[in-house]
Write a protein that binds this DNA or RNA. Structure first.
Lengths: 213, 213
DNA sequence: CAAAAAGTACACTAGCGAGTGTGCTTTTAG
DNA sequence: CTAAAAGCACACTCGCTAGTGTACTTTTTG
């Protein structure tokens, strides 16, 4: 019975360690989001991760580092998700209104739970002076979106002398307002979100669709 | 020399008490904004207010109440300021672009320091479940703005079937983006803010100015 | 002045949470 | 099998903070 099949059960020293690490970050992420930085105790994080407190400290050294690593993960995940959404939804041939609506909706509802992401981000700005980590994470998707908008402008679908500005305006009108809605009322149906996005896309197109000039 | 002028120096028992109370709330507001709820200790608040800790507790009972009262004050102040800005800047006869720009700029730069206000608000959402206090504070200015937009639409200056939506879009494009800019980079010149607002007004007018239809 | 209101100084409890030290058990690798 | 890596249980230090109790001083008022 001593066969190589055992390799499935035994992940190896390193993999096991990584597994614990990931579990700790999962727990930390959830607790930081739910409770905030100060109120989420390391003991609670350890308990939730089903790991001893000592292991937590062996892996990360201190609480601030746990936070930082968790934030990095979330940032990366969101940036990747947004990038994917841009590439997959904002495709050249597609009807513009449809594409923009699908994109906005996907970013807000799919991906992480974006509202959680926003919450996490807030903890950052909370004077915690996490260098420009969060900022960098915002920049990447913003730039990608900007490029796509520039392409749309070049293709004559949009009138956007300043694609960066257009991208910011689009985000504000759709994703920004949708997230705000999510935060305000606890119970928001997906239909409401879709409406918010659709209205935002509407206004955006009125302002930026190639027309008069 | 014992004249009634002394009344200026001696505010009376009640007024003195109110004075201390205000000083405590001032200190609390500043510290909560700077440090966050947990890190702002009651001792620090008392010290900053130049008041004994005991007095703080005599007045407010506990830390949560201090926070709540401070938040109420800030909310009221901002709501008043926004209301005043609406009434004084968004006057009927005025050129629309100019009026909207002045309004946006005033809300962002004048009034409280709005960015501080935003910071304070964040502490609220931080799971503190301050009932709908903050929400109510947001609602009042929003509704006033909505009414003014409805009036503008009636006057033929705007095409806004849904004035509430128009108001939200306006806010998102101007004030929202300006505040975001303020939070991101530590050093933002007023000129940049003005640009952000002007760009937002531009886009808004393209989307909502009475035109084609 | 006299009494009460308001405020102060300060000591004290009580609890929580970050981080450490240590010896023990389990897992994995050779 | 054996040694080392990884993890665990647990006890403990230390600092900080919310909140209280109390006796003392100042201010205000009649």
């Amino acid at each position: 019975m001593s066969r190589a099949i055992a390799a499935v059960q035994t992940p190896g020293r390193r993999r096991r360690s990584e597994g614990k690490k990931a579990a700790i970050l999962d727990a930390a992420e959830a607790l930081f989001i739910a409770e905030g930085y100060e109120r989420a105790s390391v003991d609670a994080i350890a308990a939730r991760a089903q790991v001893s407190k000592r292991t937590v400290y062996d892996h990360f050294g201190d609480k601030a580092t746990i936070f930082l690593k968790a934030l990095e993960r979330v940032n990366d995940a969101l940036a990747d998700a947004v990038q994917a959404a841009i590439e997959e939804e904002l495709t050249p041939g597609r009807d513009l209104r449809e594409a923009l609506t699908a994109f906005g909706r996907r970013v807000v509802t799919q991906t992480v739970p974006s509202s959680d992401y926003v919450t996490f981000r807030r903890l950052t700005s909370q004077h915690w002076a996490v260098p420009r980590l969060a900022e960098a994470a915002r920049d990447r998707p913003e730039r990608t979106l900007e490029e796509r908008f520039a392409a749309l402008a070049a293709g004559g679908e949009l009138t956007a002398a300043d694609p960066r500005l257009a991208a910011r305006h689009f985000t504000a009108l759709t994703i920004g307002l949708a997230l705000e809605t999510l935060e305000a009322g606890g119970d928001v149906s997906e239909a409401e979100i879709v409406t918010v996005i659709a209205d935002g896309v509407d206004a955006f197109l009125r302002a930026y669709r190639t027309g008069p000039a």
